[in-house]
Amino acid sequence: MSFVIATSVEEALAALANGASPIAGGTDLVVGARHGKFELPPELVAIDRIEALATIEIGADSMRIGSGVTHATLMADPAIVGSYTAVADAAALVGSPATRNVGTIGGNIMNASPAMDTGAPLVVLGASVELARVGSSRVVPIGDLWSGPGQTTASADELCTAVLVPSRPAASGTAYVRLEYRRAMEIAVVGAAAAVELADDGSISAVAVALSAVAPTIISIEIEPADVERGSVAEAASQQCSPITDLRASDRYRRHCVGVIASRAVDAAARRAAGESIAVPVNRALGIGAA
């Protein structure tokens, strides 16, 4: 068993090249190992003290969120709350203050749970992920990152260094809503993120919806502005998912609820696009789920 605290990305990459596994906040890794889901990797490299990973940079046509940014930062950062509100909605729902203060966006997406909260917002925002290894780095669309529950297409020696999110058009809004049974320490029963763009006349010109906890990975559904006009968002979401039955809910209930939640997410995103200020997280502001 070895535990190395890296202070730079290079150090971390070198450790990964030698077979170590990264640990950021440890809120998935340590808790999962304790629950017997898997053995704690014998060699760990801690990346939570790498300052370069903990920054948010606003570029000309995109935002770069370092993989080490915590949920507590995401939910309160003015740029995220202002332009990528669904990410803030999601981060604000994660666990408890303790979880949010150490849990990171990189850990959330690399853990690849189909119930992760930041995943669906990043999908509707068209985000991509920067993966680095010693000597090289690549950028992959976030939808291509996950290959199954707990599985990614990244190789073991790759570190997620950042999430890249394109700038948002004017008159657009996003929202993330989840079904939860209680207000803290919860995992999404189902969740949905929506991004909506409005035309000059106020009609919906573009819509994207992604769902959590209803398929082996976060899924993006096929949906048109006309579906929103017709009121068939719920139907589209319910039809396009493939939920399972587990301790939290039956497949039948999940299939029903994801429709309800998806149409609420679209509704909130559209209201935000139209300029309405709905506080983060939508769940609390609108009294959704256990709110």
């Binding site: 629950h35 049974y181 209680r182 207000r183 803290a184 320490m185 995992i187 939290r248 256990a290």
Partner: peptide, 16 residues
């Protein structure tokens, strides 16, 4: 027992 853990046996939290 299928939910012999605090994750799946849901106590109310202070926030609730």
């Amino acid at each position: 027992q299928r939910n012999a853990a605090l994750l799946e046996y849901k106590l109310q939290t202070a926030a609730d």
